[in-house]
């Protein structure tokens, strides 16, 4: 048998992915809403001088097809809900830790957006990297060393090598 060192490969045969897909219903509904919104919005677009459809044509087709595909997904979702209720354990809840990590990644990016013009690139990115590495569970000295060195390396590559003027902030 296979050794226990392979946690990430799922070996179950599931050729019927479509039919058992718990995400079909919600993704179908979202597709219908987005498609319908596009269709409503393009009604305000002008047509060509001779009356033929112009700017609205392609977004309109896109929106229409999106609604159609959404309907197919919803029908599928309802059908398999009848056949087999989605078991709660299958949709294995991602642990809180993971969501906090994701929030930290997004938060770090927003922090960069807000702070970089004031603090400058080096300060902002070093702070952001060190905190994020710590959050993901590395040791303090690893976080400080890697966070600082990687930021300086990126700064050298982009600012000095590629001549992209990275913000200096109040240092400049």
């Amino acid at each position: 048998m296979i050794s226990a060192t392979a946690p990430n490969v799922d070996e179950t045969a599931d050729e019927t992915a479509d039919e058992r897909d718990p995400s079909a219903l919600p993704s179908g509904v979202i597709a219908i809403v987005v498609g319908a919104a596009i269709l409503l919005y393009v009604r305000g677009f002008p047509s060509l001088p001779n009356g033929a459809p112009g700017p609205a044509l392609f977004p309109g087709i896109t929106g229409g097809l999106m609604v159609l595909m959404g309907v197919i997904l919803v029908v599928r979702g309802i059908k398999n809900r009848k056949q087999s209720p989605v078991s709660a354990e299958k949709s294995e809840a991602v642990r809180w830790r993971g969501w906090i990590n994701a929030g930290s990644v997004i938060g770090a990016t927003i922090f960069y957006l807000l702070a970089v013009d004031f603090l400058g690139f080096l300060t902002t990115m070093i702070a952001m990297s060190i905190l994020l590495i710590l959050r993901l569970g590395a040791k303090v000295w690893v976080a400080i060393t890697v966070g600082t060195l990687s930021t300086v390396a990126i700064w050298l590559i982009f600012d000095k090598g590629l001549k992209v003027p990275l913000p200096l902030g109040f240092w400049g």
Partner: peptide, 19 residues
């Protein structure tokens, strides 16, 4: 370790799109 790699990739994503 991915705890070190992921923040570096994020930094590249941010600087790369900014540049």
């Amino acid at each position: 370790p991915s705890s070190v790699l992921m923040p570096i990739i994020l930094a590249f994503c941010v600087v790369g799109s900014f540049s």
